[in-house]
Computed example of a mutant assay.
Amino acid sequence: MSVLIVIPARYASSRFPGKPLAELTGASGQARTLIERSWRAAMEVQGVDRVVVATDDDRIRTVSEGFGAEVVMTSADCANGTERCAEAHAALGGAYEIVVNLQGDAPLTPPWFIEDLISGLKDATGMGLATPVLRCDGSTLNSLLEDRRSGRVGGTTAVFSGDHSALYFSKEVIPFCAETYQDADETPVFHHVGVYAYRPDALKAYPQWKVGPLETLEGLEQLRFLENGRKILCVEVEARGREFWELNNPQDMPKIEHMMRKMGLS
Rank of each mutant, 00 (worst) to 15 (best):
L117D: 09
P188F: 09
E44R: 15
V63E: 15
I7E: 05
V100M: 07
V3H: 06
E115F: 02
I256T: 07
M253F: 08
P213L: 05
G155V: 01
A86I: 13
R199W: 01
L220M: 09
E179S: 14
I174L: 14
L4G: 06
Y198S: 03
K255D: 02
Q222N: 14
D49H: 11
T131M: 14
A88L: 04
M43C: 12
Y181I: 07
E44F: 02
G151A: 08
L220A: 00
P207E: 05
G128L: 11
G154Q: 07
R59Q: 05
P254D: 13
T156R: 06
T216I: 01
N101C: 14
E179M: 12
L117C: 09
S28Y: 09
Y206R: 11
Y206E: 12
V6P: 01
G128Q: 11
I98F: 09
E172D: 15
Q30F: 08
S139V: 02
L108R: 03
E146A: 12
V173I: 14
E179N: 13
D147H: 08
T156L: 05
A124W: 13
Q30V: 15
G120R: 13
R15I: 09
E246Y: 03
A90C: 02
A205D: 13
E83T: 09
E23P: 00
S139P: 00
W245G: 02
G219P: 02
F113L: 10
D116F: 01
T109K: 12
E221I: 00
I118N: 09
K231A: 15
L220W: 00
L217P: 00
I114Y: 02
L233C: 04
A178N: 09
R152L: 15
R84G: 00
C85L: 05
T55M: 11
I98R: 12
N248I: 07
D137A: 02
T125Y: 10
V153I: 13
S266T: 09
P207S: 09
G155T: 01
A79L: 11
S28V: 10
F113R: 09
I35W: 03
S64H: 06
F169L: 14
S266V: 04
V72Y: 07
R15T: 13
H89L: 03
G94T: 06
E65P: 08
S75C: 05
Y198E: 03
C177D: 04
D201P: 01
D183H: 04
R37Y: 05
A239D: 12
P250M: 11
G128P: 10
M43Y: 00
L145P: 01
G155F: 05
T33Y: 14
R32G: 00
M259P: 00
D58L: 12
E215V: 01
L203Q: 08
L92A: 06
T25G: 05
L145H: 03
V100I: 14
A239G: 04
I7W: 03
G104V: 01
S75H: 03
Y198F: 15
C177I: 11
I35Q: 05
P200R: 13
L117N: 09
S119L: 11
A166E: 08
P17D: 07
G128R: 10
A184C: 07
P17N: 02
L92W: 04
M1E: 11
A41L: 06
S165F: 00
D77Y: 06
A88D: 06
R37K: 11
G229E: 07
A239P: 04
